[in-house]
Design a protein around this nucleic acid. Sequence first.
RNA 1: GGUCCGUUAGUGUAGCGGUUAUCACGCUUCCCUUUCACGGAAGAGAUCAUGGGUUCGAUUCCCAUACGGACUACCA
Length: 506
Amino acid sequence: MNTVRVRFAPSPTGGLHIGGVRTALYNYLFAKKHNGTFIIRTEDTDQTRFVKGAESYIFDALKWLGITADESSEIGGKHAPYRQSERKKMYKQYAEELVEKDFAYYAFDTSEELEEMRKRLEQAKSKNPSYNAITRSTMRNSLTLPEDEVKTLLENGTPYVIRLKMPRKDEIRFQDIIRGWVNVHTATLDDKVIMKSDGMPTYHLANVVDDHLMEISHVIRGEEWLPSAPIHVFLYQCFGWEMPQFAHLPLLLNPDGQGKLSKRKAAEYGFPVFPLDWFEQETSNIIQGFKEAGYLPEAVNNFLALLGWNAGDHQEIFSMEELIEKFSLERVGKAGIKFDINKAKWFNQHYLRQKSDKTLVDYLKNGLKTQNLGENLSDEQAIIICQMMKDRATFPDDFWKEAIYLFKTPDAYNEQAMAKNWNEESKNFVKSYLDFLKNYTGEWHHEPLKHDLHTLVEQSGLKMGKVMPAVRLGLSGVSAGPDLAMIMQIIGKEESIKRLESIILV
RNA sequence: GGUCCGUUAGUGUAGCGGUUAUCACGCUUCCCUUUCACGGAAGAGAUCAUGGGUUCGAUUCCCAUACGGACUACCA
């Protein structure tokens, strides 16, 4: 009874949302912390919303983050299958069991009839216009129809659903690990469909049956499920099954706090919501993922873990191992969390700086390849560049993006910087420096270059701040960047001279 | 509308009856640099949503109000 078994239960209806990733992460951390089992169960009972590729996308995304399942449709397990569509046959008997126990009933109402009922109730200004303990007596179901008519209807293959017979006056109480006791009156609940006319169970039934069959000990899911949790509790009671413990996670909200984190708002604020690139069939658009945007998996995990949870001290940097060690549901907050991508960037920068030179060099080289630049960049050279750029990079691409002038001659000069720093005085200095460089015979290395440049400036009687920006502009086209002598060392003598010759012509 | 859940600086948070209300991101200033970044130092920023209680004493406990969010399908 002490074994922890948790599940992440996504439905493959599109790209996995980052909020879903966090739910998966929390489940994973909780399982690992307690030496338990982490299960991924595919909830694909809605055949109309099935999206091709979505399931494998979910697995790929979670694998990228190191959130791997112990049991899933991909790797199997002792409770296979883990795809609800493949468990279809199992649910019916449970629904029938409920009908037999008088906890559920057959309903034959057509969608038109349901629509009519809804209208009628709305006109009557009903407080709770739903199919419930009161209204079911006016509908066509096995509770109102004569027994033989129900039998005939069933035998004739008339489409029907099975609805849960929610008691009229009762109270459902359960304890949520995060929220404490939650009470709901059954009068406010409706007779939920548990078996659809296509023979598939709805989420409510499938979820409870599978959680029971798969011996799930803790149900950790988003707060959007809190309102339906009483239905699930009721279902457990009807079956006479032991209930798992519940933990409803606070939701990830848009940066402006308006609603739960949405694809639309994320695009508006300029950050991803999907872990990996997602190809959206309806629009034929590729929506950029965290990975492709340059986020490191350890940064995403760390960032996500802290969205609603903290260790109680002020530690912010956690490896996956530390998260597993420290995580607890009791320390998950209750309030919704506004998504702040700035913090994610900070984590990214932190983890980027921990990378080995080799990894950094790979980032640089791969990035340059996409730009058809730096074909003959040596590893030696690449390491120097990476170390130089390391402290000013947030994303792997910054290694080449922020130092693009090291790989190609600038085709323009930053206008503002030119206006501020380019004048007769600085131009004359660049000219004299050019003469110096042309006659330079020393080692083309940043140390002597820097030394000589400094003495030259001193001899000229000019201020560093007056002339250096001009040299920098000539060399890089921009006014900010790493040490000038380093830039010259990397681009070489010939190119340095060429660039300075160009700017003089401006 | 109904039901449920929430509310500490711009954001994420600590706090678990007595604190100058913690830390981090972001922001500002200064130092370091030829510049940017890094690093270092300092700083601004919170009537702890509001109003009532309980208490010698409430950010902490209770109630109400306001505001926000979720749900309200034969979707999950």
